[in-house]
Amino acid sequence: MPIISGYDLTKRIRERFSLTELPILLLTARSQPKDIENGFLAGANDYVKKPVDALEFKSRVQALAGVKKAMQEKLQIEAAWLQAQIQPHFLFNALNTIMALSEIDLDRMQKVLEAFSQLLRGKFKFTDLNELAPLEDELELVRAYLLIEKERFADRLHIKWEVDDDLQVIIPSLTIQPLVENAIHHGIMNRPEGGQLTICISQLENHIEIRVEDDGVGMEKSKVEGLLKKTASHKSGIGLLNTDLRLKHQFGQGLKIESVKDKGTKVSFMVPNDIGK
């Protein structure tokens, strides 16, 4: 290829996509063992030397396509599991809150019950999570979740919205609510006094930025770096990792996480302006 070699292009692709997310088959006249080794070191899945037999080439392509399909199916299963899961303590606390309000404030109880019903509908709506949904639909789910959590944590949870008007954009399903949930339970509520959650959605020149901030306990740099690695095992890590992968598949870039120990955390992602128009 002109300007850039196949090895260099492969390295660039590997900066964004893993071996299973986007398999690469190198087709080249270079046949020395060192050339083959360099191809695999660059990140290729397979290496075919010219001249190539058509049947062999087709078989190798089909095998790698199967690898990618298996990865996509795994991601979808994991996303559906994350979509459906509701932590037992959240379920019990929500129901306890509703029962307590039934004895002191029926209007507030009705609002929490409606929010709880809306949240359950969103969580158990098994759709293709690679499909795009209107931003407002995602925000409605977030508002329902926050209404319940605000009733539960009262003055320990302060919520600030900074959302530009008339934003018409679509995003992958369930990409904001997991960030909000993570900020509350792993950031803010780890402080005895609680703190503030800020949801900021801004129109920039070429993108819309969606950002979730908290002034909770924050994280050290090493922990931040581990959150989006394929080996993430903590439940919050799995949720963030899955969201990051789905965003990368859709937009080519995923989550950006900034955190300072004892200061708080910012998690953001960008959506191109032309999505949904």
Score class of each variant (00 low, 15 high):
7 Y>H: 06
12 R>K: 11
16 R>M: 08
20 T>E: 15
22 L>N: 07
24 I>T: 12
28 T>Q: 05
30 R>H: 12
35 D>Y: 08
39 G>C: 04
43 G>P: 12
48 V>I: 15
53 D>Y: 07
56 E>L: 15
68 K>C: 15
69 K>F: 09
77 I>G: 09
80 A>Y: 05
82 L>H: 15
86 I>V: 14
95 L>R: 03
103 E>M: 05
105 D>W: 01
107 D>I: 00
110 Q>W: 00
112 V>T: 05
113 L>A: 15
125 K>G: 08
127 T>F: 02
129 L>H: 10
130 N>M: 14
132 L>A: 10
139 L>N: 08
142 V>C: 04
144 A>W: 03
144 A>P: 10
151 E>W: 04
155 D>V: 13
155 D>L: 14
156 R>N: 05
161 W>I: 00
163 V>R: 07
165 D>Y: 05
174 L>M: 15
175 T>Y: 00
177 Q>L: 13
177 Q>E: 09
189 M>A: 10
192 P>N: 03
199 I>G: 10
199 I>F: 05
207 H>N: 15
215 D>W: 06
218 G>Y: 04
222 S>M: 12
232 A>T: 14
233 S>C: 09
234 H>R: 14
235 K>R: 13
240 L>M: 13
240 L>H: 09
249 H>D: 06
251 F>H: 08
251 F>M: 12
251 F>Q: 11
254 G>D: 04
256 K>G: 09
262 D>T: 02
267 V>P: 02
272 P>H: 14
